Amino acid sequence: MPGKSEAIVVGAGVAGVMTALELARRGERVTLIDRWEPGHSRASSTDYNRIIRAIHGRDEFYTRWVREARLRWMELQAEIGQTLYYECGALILATRGHCHWEDATAETFDKLGVPYYRFSAEETALRFPQFDTSSIAYSLYEPEAGMIMAHRGVRAGLELFQRAGGTVARGHVTTDAHERLHLDGKPLEADLIVVASGPWMGEMFPRTIKPISTVVGVNVLYTSTPDGSTAFDMANMPCWIDHGEGSFGLPSSEGCGVKAAVVIPDKIDLDNDERLIRRETLSRTRRYIQKRLPGLVGERVVDSKFNQIILTPDTHFIVDWHPEHSNVLFAGGCSGHLYKHGPVFGDFVAGVGLKEYGTADRFRIAGRRKLSPAESPSGR
């Protein structure tokens, strides 16, 4: 379209793909660049599935965003003609003596009108017999929640971006000592450059992003369902969050097995480490399964994923301009909870990039501080 600016998006994970899609739909000339094929297994936006839930403690901003993102995912699903969203619900288990975040979530849901149920430990066990509820005080069940098929969602967004006239390119984007961007050694130039490189963002911008970010690895295991049983399938079991145990999981979907993660941050060298889980994770996860999911005791691990996320001190995203390069916009800092927000996040970043509005204060680079679990939108 004549008069439109040229935009480049660096990084083809969910943040980059959804931002590129929204820029293209606004009529911009957009090129999406990644080092590898979009949807590749090194990315943070890989794996089979992700939980989508409005559970965010007292944080109304993200709660509203997820409610909108859920509708956007449904629209994308209808547009692409593929299943991207399964509404199997989400269960948050409130451990005795560790309920501040769950209490705050219930208050936020009441205020914003988000549908949910509150169950006692006994009621939870009756409704969801897969879980041992002996250590919980209560649970919150969000029926309008579930899972997004992660790899498929990125690929669907990529296809829609290309249908909208976007260009996909392969290349290695780096920075020099002044944090100026280069593509395969040559200066990268455009009216707007959105950097959505996920955990690589800190390495690329050691002065600007690295001081407010940490990269951690996350080990995820998939366990087989019992012979002849449908109890752990998504038709009968919800996704769940278990902050008291530092864990979360998803029921078996499309035959992949039950996904369980014990969130003990691990180290990773992004460019040199293999994407293989640590062997000690097996025992940690099996101990968790023995405590919380006794019906899976003795079942075999059938798959595993080793992923990485970039954490900010307050677990808020980053959507802000580079302090020295006025055409460079950062988009990411996912802190493990960006994927579900994908379509809304991309729309917001596109609007900031085109100067339709400014960014939110919580997304700015400056002023970051560690939040207490009660304040944090992620409960961490």
Rank of each mutant, 00 (worst) to 15 (best):
P115Y: 06
A350P: 10
C334I: 05
L181S: 08
A137I: 06
A261R: 00
E324C: 11
E189P: 00
M234E: 10
T19Q: 05
R275D: 03
L282V: 15
G333A: 08
Q130L: 00
I55M: 06
L192T: 15
K355E: 15
H243A: 05
Y85V: 15
R287S: 15
E179W: 08
A177F: 03
G198P: 00
M18C: 11
V194H: 08
G81N: 11
R369Q: 13
D191T: 02
Y339T: 07
M234L: 09
R275A: 02
R287A: 15
P373Y: 00
P187S: 06
G332L: 04
M204S: 00
R29E: 14
T133V: 13
L311D: 07
D176A: 12
D47N: 06
E37W: 01
G257V: 01
P211D: 05
D271Q: 06
R369P: 07
C239N: 06
R72P: 08
E356S: 12
G246K: 03
R50N: 10
F161G: 10
Y138N: 09
M149L: 15
A374L: 08
E356N: 11
Y138L: 11
P206Y: 01
G185H: 09
M204A: 02
H325Q: 14
A235F: 01
M237Y: 00
V30M: 13
G255V: 00
R369N: 10
G295P: 01
M147F: 12
I310S: 12
F317E: 04
R286L: 11
R170K: 09
D34Y: 00
G171M: 04
D273M: 03
G89L: 03
D34R: 01
A69T: 14
S283H: 08
A24Y: 12
F306G: 02
I289S: 02
T208L: 01
E274T: 07
S45P: 05
D233S: 09
L93F: 07
L71I: 10
R29Y: 13
T31S: 15
L158W: 10
A331K: 03
G198E: 02
G146P: 08
G298V: 02
E159L: 11
E6S: 12
T63G: 06
K355A: 15
L71G: 14
G113I: 04
D191N: 09
G346S: 09
L276T: 14
P265Y: 11
A231E: 14
V344H: 12
S376P: 04
N219D: 14
A94D: 08
M204L: 09
E274S: 10
L293G: 01
R369W: 07
F232Q: 03
Y86L: 14
A90D: 14
S224R: 00
E87A: 10
F109H: 12
A235Y: 01
A7N: 11
F317K: 02
G171Q: 07
R64W: 04
P129E: 13
I268L: 05
G153E: 05
G198W: 00
Y222R: 01
T230Q: 11
D176T: 11
G171V: 03
Y339I: 09
S213H: 00
G336N: 04
I33M: 05
V114C: 04
M147R: 05
K186E: 13
H182G: 03
K267A: 06
R35T: 09
